[in-house]
Nucleic acid binder design. Structure first.
Lengths: 182, 182
DNA sequence: TAGGCCATGTAACCGGTTACATGATTAG
DNA sequence: CTAATCATGTAACCGGTTACATGGCCTA
């Protein structure tokens, strides 16, 4: 999942500036499975425009800086649709929390407790953000994805809350440590 | 989650060569939340050795090429344990499948059907791999993580299987497309 | 005999992040 | 008066991947 695809996806919905693209990639319904920063947005926009996949127009605003609104060209839309129909890459999932959990014996009760409560609060806030998107949007496919997210995060939350004591009990338990994972 | 942390985590369990580290990062119990390639393992091992966090020794094998086994030094273990006790980064999750789903109207029935069945088979094979690790390992924390993975993947699977028809029904439905996500 | 596994390593490249530069306006 | 929001962009850097080089052994 690269900047190009994400930008094309956002522009497929509506015209937007680099700044708005960033906002949507961090706050909107896309935010829970992608994320990009300014440093990759602006150069990618320039490249996509040079390639003729998007077109930009400048807009003056009063009280605010000028901005450059980009929209998909016909070619851009065609190419994007085509790419969407190809088999997707597998999901990427990276979790430092799970690494810490897998080595819970090396942690302290405090460090583990903190990691767990942080995870729980973070999950809950993500879920309420998604509920917010859900309330504002009635596109069936966006709803499908949002419900998916809620369902999976709820499962995550349930497991962590129901099993946190087991994990906490392992803190500092050095005797359980060495073993061949082979 | 970088190469350094993962390598240290693997070596914390036991001495290993670069080649074994790669295997464990793609096949072992770590595989479902991390992944690295040779191109980052070998240079990182060299750097960690230069920094005195790990120590390598060469071993001759008959019928097989020599290999270099690395193990944690005292300093390496101390630094690793310390880093484990710091609050972890939030999980990273990237999914092209969800992007495709969010734009299901632009897909074809075939492209969506394929994406779904690929996801389902992939999830099932990951889950059976985890069940395999579970059968071979009795470290409580590793089991905790494995059960967590199974629980979350099952939730993913359930949602997809129970709701795939809704998604499929949207394929090619252009009329439902334009809308402001605002 | 072809392909896969064992095993280490390098070089080119790439896709991204972080930090910086700039500057007006608005809300607290 | 300070901080945040709006807005665009660049440069340095970094962490990784892909592909290549090398080569012996084993299995189908």
């Amino acid at each position: 999942m690269n900047a190009k695809t994400l930008i094309l996806a956002i522009l497929n919905f509506q015209e937007a500036s680099g700044y708005e693209i960033r906002k949507r990639s961090t706050e909107g319904p896309f935010s829970y499975f992608v994320d990009i920063s300014f440093g990759s947005i602006y150069p990618t926009l320039a490249k996509l425009e040079a390639d003729g996949l998007i077109a930009g127009r400048s807009e003056q605003q009063d009280g605010k800086p000028d901005r450059k609104l980009y929209s998909l060209t016909e070619r851009g839309r065609a190419e994007f649709v085509k790419s969407l129909r190809e088999p997707p890459q597998q999901d990427q999932y990276k979790s430092e929390f799970l690494l810490i959990s897998m080595l819970a014996e090396l942690g302290t009760r405090e460090s583990l407790e903190r990691a767990i409560t942080d995870r729980v609060t973070h999950l809950k806030s993500e879920m309420s953000a998604i509920r917010g998107h859900l309330a504002e949007c009635d596109r069936a496919s966006t709803r499908w994805v949002a419900e998916f997210g809620l369902h999976c995060m709820q499962a995550d939350l349930d497991y962590v809350e129901q099993n946190k004591d087991k994990l906490l009990a392992l803190a500092g338990n050095r005797t359980a440590l060495p073993d061949a994972v082979e």
